[in-house]
């Protein structure tokens, strides 16, 4: 039977868990942000959420990280877009590809297949000609990595 002492111990353990786990996520996030700034050129806070404008199509679970299909489809007019980028948070080189579009494309659309080292967020980032950035992201679970 649980007495008062056990209860206090349990509460203590719970508090330790509650305080340590957010710290871990914060340090991971800041590492991603560092990579993001290095490869995209702006901090992540400057990039607006464009999930309503950008349609990012990826599998939820990829059996092999060597071949993950990614398709980006956007409602943003192509005349306003300078480039779009595929960015994978946990890859050794997160900047997968940068595509410079012109009005000759007629529509913002790009599809390819990428390699992923492990489970990670896949981001589609669009730089508009007025200097603003939009992004949409989706987590892809990878069972076998394809970069190492």
């Amino acid at each position: 039977m649980m007495n008062r002492r056990d209860l206090i111990k349990l509460m203590g353990a719970g508090m330790v868990m509650a305080t340590t786990s957010p710290l871990v996520t914060i340090s991971h996030a800041s590492e991603v942000e560092k990579k993001f700034k290095k490869h995209v050129g702006v901090p992540m806070s400057k990039v607006k959420d464009g999930s309503s404008l950008i349609k990012l199509k990826t599998p939820t679970i990829a059996e092999t990280g060597a071949n993950v299909p990614v398709a980006i489809d956007s409602k943003v007019p192509v005349e306003e877009v300078e480039w779009l980028m595929i960015f994978v948070d946990n890859n050794p080189v997160p900047r997968v590809i940068k595509v410079h579009l012109t009005p000759m494309n007629g529509k913002v659309y790009f599809a390819t297949r990428i390699k992923m080292a492990k489970t990670s967020n896949v981001r589609a980032i669009i730089k508009k000609k007025d200097g603003t950035y939009l992004q949409a992201f989706k987590e892809v679970k990878v069972t076998i990595g394809g970069c190492g």
Binding site: V93, T102, T112, R113
Partner: peptide, 27 residues
């Protein structure tokens, strides 16, 4: 390019799959 005019330029990284597939729209 289309008839010598630039349509799309890509900076490709090593994380694109082997025997890469690409698709874009153009008019």
């Amino acid at each position: 390019t289309f008839n010598g005019k630039k349509v799309t330029h890509m900076d490709v990284g090593g994380a694109v799959s082997a025997n890469p597939y690409f698709a874009v729209m153009m008019k």
